[in-house]
Structure formats: structure tokens, C-alpha cells
Simulated assay, not measured.
Amino acid sequence: MYKYFSSAYKFGSIAGALSVIAFVALSFLYPDPTNLNLVFGYVISPIAIFLAIKFFKEYSNNGYLSFAEGMSLGFVTYMLEAILSLIGIWIVLQIHPNLFEQIKASKLDVLATSKDSIVSQVGLESYGMTLESVKNMVSLDIALNDGLWKIIPGLFFTIIISIILRRNPN
């Protein structure tokens, strides 16, 4: 079992740690680091998935890779990245509640300044529900959102990378 997932553990852990580090670093530069951290995740996730699958294929499986193996490795990689990112961001927000309040205020400000545009697109009722949900937001919501946005693109990238790197014995 370790043979199958050793590269996934390594690269998933590195990607999760880098995601938390990016969140902290971006929090010093921007009042709301969540959006840029999501963009960082879109860059680091496919790299981590590719490296985990490629290392398994080349160094543990004699150059062969089935689609199922690629999907399994990718799944472990992006889930580990998402879980570590979720836990790390939640801990950072628990330790620094001012950062959470700053992020919440930034999101409320965006809703207030874009009210007319949002209402014209989704209606006043949806805008009101969104405003209420942001007002009731807790730090776990921010961490969960980040984790989910590691999983969704991670699945997409895993499918593509597994197809590209697939090579079965003749």
C-alpha cells in the first residue's frame, strides 16, 4: 500500500503546507487573502497531482500507470492537500481572530459596493440571503470553502493527468 501512495502523501502534504503558507503570506499583503489563495490552489494542485502520479509511475511502477492507479493517487494527493489546507487555515484564523474579522469586513464591503450589480443578476432575495450568510460566517466557513475549492479542481486535474500519463504494459 505504501508503494502506491508514498508519492501522493509527499506531494499532497507539500501542497497543503504551501497553501497554508500562501494564505498567511497573502494575509500580510491583502485584507482578504481568500480569493488569491484559491488562485494559488489552482496552480499548486495540478503540479502536486502531476508530480505524485509521475513519481509513482517512474520510480515505483516501472514506467506503467493504469487510469485507476492515476485516479487513486490523484485522489489521495488532492484530498490530503485539501484537508491540510482546511485545518491549517482554520487554525490560523483561530489564532488571529482579527484576520477573520478583516476578511469578513472585506467580503461585506464587496457585497455593499456591488449591490446593484448583484441584485440585477440574481435578485434582491438572493442578495439578502448572501448578505445574511456572510454576516453569520465563522472561521470554519472560510477554511471549508478553501478545502472544497481544492477538491473540485483536483478531481478535474486528476482525470486529465491520469489520462495523459496512462501507460499499460503491452
Rank of each mutant, 00 (worst) to 15 (best):
L111A: 03
A112C: 06
A112H: 11
A112Y: 08
T113H: 07
T113V: 08
S114P: 06
S114I: 09
S114D: 03
S114Y: 08
D116K: 08
D116C: 05
S117R: 06
S117D: 09
S117L: 06
S117H: 07
I118D: 01
V119T: 02
V119H: 12
V119A: 02
V119G: 07
V119I: 12
V119F: 01
Q121C: 00
Q121L: 08
Q121R: 11
Q121K: 04
V122N: 00
G123I: 05
L124M: 09
E125W: 08
E125N: 05
E125Y: 10
S126V: 11
S126D: 07
Y127A: 05
Y127M: 15
Y127W: 12
Y127G: 10
G128N: 12
M129L: 14
M129R: 13
M129Q: 15
M129K: 15
M129C: 14
M129T: 15
T130R: 06
L131E: 14
L131W: 09
L131P: 10
S133A: 14
S133R: 15
S133Y: 14
S133V: 15
S133D: 15
V134W: 11
K135P: 14
K135Y: 10
K135H: 15
K135E: 14
N136I: 06
N136A: 13
N136Q: 10
M137C: 04
M137L: 10
V138G: 09
V138E: 13
V138R: 12
V138W: 10
V138L: 11
S139I: 07
S139H: 10
L140Y: 06
L140M: 11
L140A: 05
L140G: 07
D141C: 07
D141Q: 09
D141H: 11
I142A: 10
I142R: 05
A143H: 06
A143P: 03
A143N: 02
A143I: 09
A143E: 09
L144V: 13
L144Q: 03
L144A: 10
L144D: 06
D146M: 13
D146E: 13
D146Q: 13
D146C: 09
G147H: 03
G147W: 03
G147N: 08
L148R: 10
L148Y: 14
W149C: 05
W149T: 09
W149S: 05
K150T: 12
K150Q: 07
I151K: 03
I152S: 04
I152P: 14
I152C: 03
P153D: 10
P153W: 04
P153K: 06
P153C: 15
G154K: 02
L155D: 01
L155T: 11
F156C: 04
F157V: 06
T158W: 01
T158D: 02
T158F: 04
T158I: 05
T158M: 04
I159H: 03
I159P: 00
I160E: 02
I160C: 11
I161K: 01
I161T: 08
S162N: 00
S162K: 00
S162H: 00
I163T: 05
I164A: 00
I164H: 03
L165W: 02
L165C: 04
L165E: 04
R166L: 01
R166H: 01
R166T: 08
R167Y: 01
R167L: 00
R167H: 00
R167D: 01
R167Q: 04
N168L: 14
N170C: 04
N170Y: 13
